[in-house]
Each structure stands twice: as C-alpha cells, then as structure tokens.
C-alpha cells in the first residue's frame, strides 16, 4: 500500500469516526462525572485545534475491532497515534477510554471484552507517551450501541473503543 492510499484511508476513517460519534462524550447515564447525573461538557469550536470537538471530529475519537478481538488494526493504530500526539500537546485533558462490544455475545462476556479493548487502547496511548495517570478505562459491553440494527454494519460500528476527553 503506498503512502497516498494510506493517507486517503486515514482521512476516510477519520471522517467515518467523526460521523459515527457526533455526540462526543456526554449524554451517558452517570458517566464518570457524578452519581447518576448527566455529564455536560463544552465541546468548543471544531475549528479550534485545542477543542474537544476538534479531537472528536477531526482527530477521531473511535477505533473499531473485529469479532471477539482487541487487536489494533494498522488503521486503528494510526488513529491512536494521532490521538496520542494531540493528547501530549494538551496535557490539561483527562482521558476516559470506553470499551464497547456488539450485541452478538452474552452480556457478561461483552463487559469483559469491552474492558479488554479499552485496556488495549490505554496501553497503546501510554506507549505513545501519554501519562498513565491521565487515563481511566470503562467497559459498557453491549449496553451502549452507537448504531442500532441487527445487521453486520451495526455490529461492525459497535465493536469500538472511544477516547473521551474532558478538562
């Protein structure tokens, strides 16, 4: 694969990740920030390279996995390297890596699988120089699909790890 093709793939993946995850990090039940509350985070201007919106939409906050796997594809590694360099530039952001699974598995196994995926991303970011103290992980198993349908395209989108940044 030549460099140009790779670059196009990365751009395509970033665009895909961005439209897959328009909500950024908020809107989850009791997510990290308070008991049972809904976290509210100012996302900022997506054109501002220091903003959360820029991270979510331009860098891309999501990587995807194959069935039952936590292996990082070359594409996923590229996204995570870009995430890491951004996170290293802006050390004021805290990081929560969410691991998710598709619905084609049992509930408990999927929680464990999501934990494995989130840990894999965490380990990759740490290897890229992001401070371990900034990163927490959580697994949602199959409880929070981003796409809802009983088809391959939804299962593919739902096997994911999302890097959620907050101040």
């Amino acid at each position: 694969m030549n460099t140009l093709t790779k670059a196009i793939l990365v751009v395509a993946a970033l665009a895909l990740a961005a439209c897959n995850n328009p909500r950024g990090g908020d809107g989850m039940d009791g997510m990290g920030t308070g008991a049972g509350g809904i976290a509210s985070t100012a996302l900022g201007d997506p054109n501002d390279p220091t903003s959360i919106a820029y991270f979510n939409e331009t860098i891309g906050d999501t990587v995807n996995f194959t069935v039952d796997s936590s292996d990082l594809s070359p594409l996923a590694q590229n996204i995570l390297r870009t995430q890491a360099s951004w996170l290293n530039r802006f050390p004021e952001y805290q990081i929560l890596v969410e691991g998710h699974a598709d619905e084609r598995g049992t509930r408990e196994y999927n929680v464990a699988l999501g934990a494995r995926r989130a840990a894999r991303v965490q380990q990759f970011l740490i290897a890229e120089g992001v401070s371990a103290a900034r990163i927490r992980t959580v697994s949602y198993g199959k409880e929070r699909p981003i796409e809802v349908c009983a088809e391959q395209r939804c299962w593919d989108a739902n096997r994911r790890a999302v890097t959620v940044v907050s101040r």
């Binding site: 039940d29 009791g30 997510m31 959580v138």
Partner: peptide, 8 residues
Amino acid sequence: TSYETGFP
C-alpha cells in the same frame, strides 16, 4: 451490577 459511579 450498576454504573452508578460511571463504572460497573
């Protein structure tokens, strides 16, 4: 199992 604190 509950996500009351944000984590299972």
